[in-house]
């Protein structure tokens, strides 16, 4: 293929590549939202696709000393690309799963840092996860025909891996002059440090987010009881974790059953919540069920160790007719 032919092909296909990049990003974002993630929080860099500039494409196809293609047009698979940058190694897994599960495309898992580590255990270099996605069936998006031949490269990496890539991509790989060994060494050292730090980040996140409350799924189960009894979707806030943390010794596999049986036995509670829903934020959260149950069954403990202002409990105690007096 001559440079001219390459250019003609590209002029013809460019819009289809652009459209396919858009579909890929939108699909992954939709799935992330379904998994309960807020895009703004979960992705550390706003997700978007990018079509390669014409010059850099031709440069890559015909003027790279280290690469020679027999069929450059089809062999260059990153003509359109999208990048997802997350905080933690374990977050990568979520996007990885989304890509592998989707029925929209076929995927070619062409790079994964875990496999790189297996293959080259002594090497500390660029880490990322790359997929090449092609439509399973031809699509028509906005009048643009996307054939099953059109690839899109997706890169997924942590914020720290991304920082490394940003530094090395332009400064090292595209360096005009030969790079000194000491610079390579320093870059490799920083990758080793990044891998170590990513590991620590994961460990910290694990220790913060994994305890009996998470393992037993207490909050989501309370939410489910709230919904099934009141028919209202709860809006439970993080303060429930402070409460559960304070009463840690109550958190075990019988807690939810005990609360559920109390709520089922006391249908008035669902009615009270429905009636007082707009009275205060507490009634909108499944936390209220835990508190009613504690007022009824663990009152002594609740009153002795309640981490917030006790006046919050007064309306709840009044709702179920439990005296909060301490003077026995």
């Amino acid at each position: 293929m001559t440079e001219e032919e390459f250019q003609q092909h590209w002029d013809r296909d460019k819009l289809a590549y652009d459209a396919w990049g858009g579909v890929v990003v939108a699909t992954i974002c939709t799935e992330l939202k379904k998994a309960g993630k807020s895009i703004d929080v979960f992705l550390k860099i706003p997700p978007k696709h990018r079509v390669k500039g014409e010059q850099s494409l031709i440069d890559k196809a015909f003027y790279r000393p280290d690469k020679s293609y027999t069929d450059p047009y089809n062999e260059i698979e990153d003509k359109v690309g999208a990048r997802f940058v997350v905080l933690l190694i374990e977050d990568i897994k979520l996007i990885d799963d989304i890509i592998k599960r989707s029925e929209l495309w076929t995927f070619d898992a062409c790079k994964h840092f875990d496999e790189d580590k297996e293959r080259e255990p002594l090497l500390f270099t660029y880490q990322s996860v790359h997929f090449i996605l092609r439509p399973k069936k031809a699509l028509n998006v906005g009048g643009c025909n996307i054939t099953t031949e059109i690839p899109c490269e997706v890169q997924i990496r942590t914020l720290l891996q991304h920082a490394h890539a940003e530094l090395t991509h332009d400064a090292i790989y595209k360096a005009k002059r030969a790079v000194k060994p000491s610079v390579h060494r320093t870059v490799a050292k920083s990758m080793a440090l990044i891998e170590t730090t990513d590991g620590f980040f994961n460990e910290v996140s694990h220790q913060l987010n994994h305890g009996p409350v998470e393992e037993l799924g207490i909050v989501s189960k309370l939410d489910a009881i709230y919904f099934s009894s009141t028919k209202i979707k709860p809006n439970t806030q993080k303060s429930i974790l402070t409460i559960l943390d304070e009463f840690e010794d109550l958190v075990n596999d019988t807690l939810i059953d005990s609360i559920e049986s109390y709520i089922n036995k006391t249908p008035e509670i669902a009615e009270i919540i429905q009636e007082k829903y707009s009275d205060s934020a507490l009634y909108k959260q499944s936390t209220v069920l835990l508190l009613y149950w504690m007022l009824k069954r663990k009152k002594r403990k609740l009153l002795d160790s309640w981490p917030f202002d006790k006046s919050i409990l007064i309306p709840l105690a009044n709702d179920i007719g439990v005296s909060m007096r301490d003077d026995h």
Partner: peptide, 14 residues
């Protein structure tokens, strides 16, 4: 709410 509280304290559970 305070009036209810007095009633609950006087007549309610415990």
């Amino acid at each position: 709410e305070t009036f209810k509280q007095r009633i609950v304290e006087a007549l309610g559970e415990s």
